[in-house]
Every structure is written in C-alpha cells, then in structure tokens.
Nucleic acid binder design. Structure first.
Lengths: 149, 149
DNA sequence: GCCGTTCCTGCAAAATGTTGCAACAGGGGG
DNA sequence: CCCCCTGTTGCAACATTTTGCAGGAACGGC
C-alpha cells in the first residue's frame, strides 16, 4: 500500500515508450515523484526528492523532463506565489484560491469556474484558462480577525 | 516634457523622508525608473536601466528597494508568465488578461472586476485580489485562426 | 547478446532572485 | 560644520531556472 497509486507511473512509462521516447532511470524517478505527489509539487522539491534516492541526477534533467511531460500532456503547471507548481494533468486542473495572509488553499468547483469564464468571455471574447494562475486574496477566517493587522 | 510625470518622484521622495527613510542616489534612480515606466516593468529591466545611468548599483539594491516601496504602498507587483512586474500603486491595479499564444494584453474594467469578485466571494466568502495574478488564456484573434495549431 | 543511431544526461555558464555581513553614508544633534 | 548613529549599499555566496555542448546510454536491428 506504500505505493498505492504508483500504478500510474508504469502506465505513463508504457505510453512514453509507445511515443518513441526513451525510458531512463532518471525519468522513472521523476515520474514517481510528480505522479505520487499529493496535490502540486515544485521543481526544486522534485529535484531534491529524486537526488535523495538517486544521487548525481542534475537539476536541469528535472526541468527538461517536466517540460517534456507537460508538452505531451501528462502534467501541467500553474503559478503560485512562490513560483511554478506541477501536478498530474487533469487531477489538479482547478482554480486555486490562495490566502495571501495565512497561505491556506482552496479551489473552485467546475461550475463556479465555468461561470467565471463566461463572465470574462464577454470581454472581447477572451477565453481564459483560470487554472494557469492562482487567485490571491483573503480567506474568510483571515478577514474575521484582521483588525489587528 | 521629457520628464512629464517625474514630479511624482519628488513627491515620493518627500514622503519617504517624512517616514524617516534615507534618500540615496540609488533610491532616486530606482524611483524614477519605476514611476516613469509606461505600464509595468520587471526588476531586471529596472536594474539595467539604473545601472546604465549609475554604474555600480547592485541588483540586490534594486530588489530590496522594490520590496520596501511595495511594503509602504508606493508600488505593487503582479505575476505574469515571465515573472513579477512592478507598477505605480493604484495606476496599474487592474486585471491583466494575457493571451498565451500571441502575448497580447488587455485589462478588465472595474465593473467587470467587481462582478468577478462577487462571484468568487460566494465561495466560502473568499475575498480575491484579481490584480495580483494575471489571467492567462486565448484572445479572440488567436481563437479565429487556431486550426493551424 | 553486440552495434550503431540518436536521444538523454551531466556539466558548465549565465540570468534571475535572496540573504548575511562589513563598510559606507544620510541626516539629525551638537 | 563636524560627529555619531543607524539605515543602506555593495559584495559574496547561494538558490532557482535555462541553454549549449560533448559524452553516455536506450533500444531497435542484426
């Protein structure tokens, strides 16, 4: 059970191989980290985790692999306050609401997202991808006790 | 006319001095760049511009000054695809719509912004700051001729 | 099970941000 | 007008991210 959802790794490996890409130990390790990550994970975190189990893996390999996986649609990235965060494609494709004060995170439902997109679309037919950038703000709890500043 | 709106620099200098902060040549130069910038400007651009007129100014001074100016409310920053962009506080506080394909930028009106914020606020009373992160997407023009991929 | 083609990786260098520290300088007080 | 206090700066070192290049390793073919 320690690798409950690592099955996705092998499936992805098979898919990558079918596309003519080469399966290296580095790519296996990187896939394991990002596909098994709870929620999203930053490139430096992936790099450190991979290097812990497989010393010598260069950070540039991690960045190039993440870019490759994103180009092929296996993962996606979104922008948070601290920088880019990667996540399994489809699974984390929701609108991130991040409290600028306490850092708590929440997400909008697909319905709420569609309503927002519809509203923005009225502006010169712009078609937004609300999942790409997080939305910063203040959560309910932090608004309650904000008198102290 | 070559410094049409640089008057804001001297006013800001006065305000900074009133707060007990010291006025250095570096701070003057940085203020001139960011307050006279058309729209938003990135930290590296500020650094290069300042160093062009005043060699020896360290980039870390630019970053620290930008942070200080933001903490005191004189400027703000928002997140675009390439990274942080600074702008005069209040002046650029609008929602940025950026086309992921052609890079064109647009902005929402205050009314549109309020409507969006109202919609998001229904979700657990989250109070969003839609100006902090840009909104990525596809503009009307790019959607028209997107069959070519 | 070996070979060769070609994709990948590691390394190095550069650009962008961040931080600790010692030296410098702004500006109020004498 | 000089001095001192302390806020600022430059420097160095480090972290993150990107790119070019040469050597190394997948994996299909034999």
């Amino acid at each position: 059970m320690s690798q409950s959802n690592s099955h996705g790794v092998e499936e992805t490996i098979t898919s990558l191989r079918a596309r003519g890409l080469r399966i290296t130990p580095q790519r296996r390790a990187i896939l394991q980290e990002i596909l098994n990550a709870k929620g999203h994970i930053s490139p430096p975190t992936v790099a450190r985790a991979v290097q812990a189990r497989m010393p010598g893996v260069n950070a540039s390999t991690v960045y190039r692999t993440l870019t490759m996986l994103e180009d092929l649609g296996y993962v996606s990235h979104s922008h948070h306050e601290a920088g880019a965060e990667y996540h399994r494609a489809g699974e984390g494709d929701h609108v991130h609401l991040i409290c600028a004060r306490c850092g708590s995170q929440d997400a909008l439902s697909s319905e709420e997202e569609r309503a927002l997109a519809r509203l923005i679309g009225r502006h010169r037919r712009f078609h937004p991808d609300l999942t790409h950038f997080a939305i910063s703000g203040t959560c309910d709890a932090c608004q309650q006790h904000n008198g102290s500043r």
